[in-house]
Amino acid sequence: MKHFIVFVVVALLSHSLIAGEYAQEANENPFLNGELNSKYEGEVTALAGDVVEIQPTEQNFPVYKLNLSIVGVKPIWVTSIAPKPEGGISVGDKMIFKGFISTTLATDPSGKLGKITGSKTLLMAIQSERAK
């Protein structure tokens, strides 16, 4: 296959998790104006795409810019507290991140994360794996 088909999968990570107030809306479309919708903060989602940039942070959890290749959706920033897959994560890797929609300010009240990403939202990943 010449092109990697990027997809967005919205699902619960575990049967024990309880869906939030906006789970149904977030399942249908977690984006607003090309970015993750902060209204859905705390809702579970999964994103898949190509890692196009990696930036370090003071918290020792780098942020990954993920190109989803979805028309109208900008690359989405992801930070991950999950163990990295074997071989780590590099620019050009095709990855799937599963986690929670978060705001950069909630993740880092100092505002430094928002300055690094230039975004108000990101995915707080608790699972990461290479896309097949």
Rank of each mutant, 00 (worst) to 15 (best):
I76L: 00
K98G: 05
F100H: 01
I126K: 11
P30S: 03
D93H: 03
L17W: 15
I116W: 12
S128L: 06
P56W: 05
A23W: 08
G111W: 06
E25P: 01
S80A: 00
T121Q: 02
L36G: 00
I81E: 05
G20K: 05
W77N: 01
I89L: 05
K132M: 05
N29A: 09
F7R: 02
I5F: 13
K98H: 10
I96L: 07
V91W: 10
L17I: 09
H3W: 10
K112Q: 15
G42M: 07
K98V: 06
S80C: 14
S128E: 09
E86L: 12
K2F: 13
V71A: 07
G92M: 04
S102F: 05
K115P: 15
I81N: 10
I18A: 06
I76C: 00
R130T: 04
E86W: 04
I70K: 01
G49T: 11
I101C: 03
E86A: 05
P62Q: 02
E58F: 13
S110Q: 13
P30Y: 06
F4H: 13
A131Y: 02
L12M: 03
S38I: 10
S80T: 01
L32V: 01
P85R: 12
Q24C: 08
P83E: 13
K112R: 12
V71F: 12
A19N: 11
N37K: 04
E25T: 00
E28I: 15
G118I: 01
F100R: 12
L17E: 10
V91C: 15
K65S: 11
Y64W: 13
P109A: 06
E41I: 11
I54E: 15
L68E: 00
G49D: 03
S110C: 10
S69H: 01
L17G: 07
I89P: 10
L32F: 14
E53C: 10
I116M: 09
S16L: 02
N60I: 02
I116F: 12
I18R: 03
V9S: 04
S128V: 09
E129R: 08
S38G: 08
T57A: 15
T57N: 08
Q24D: 04
F7K: 15
D108Y: 09
T121H: 02
G88F: 02
A46C: 05
Y64V: 02
L32I: 13
V52P: 00
I81S: 03
A23G: 06
V44A: 02
G99C: 14
K65F: 01
G114V: 04
T104N: 13
F7V: 11
K65H: 03
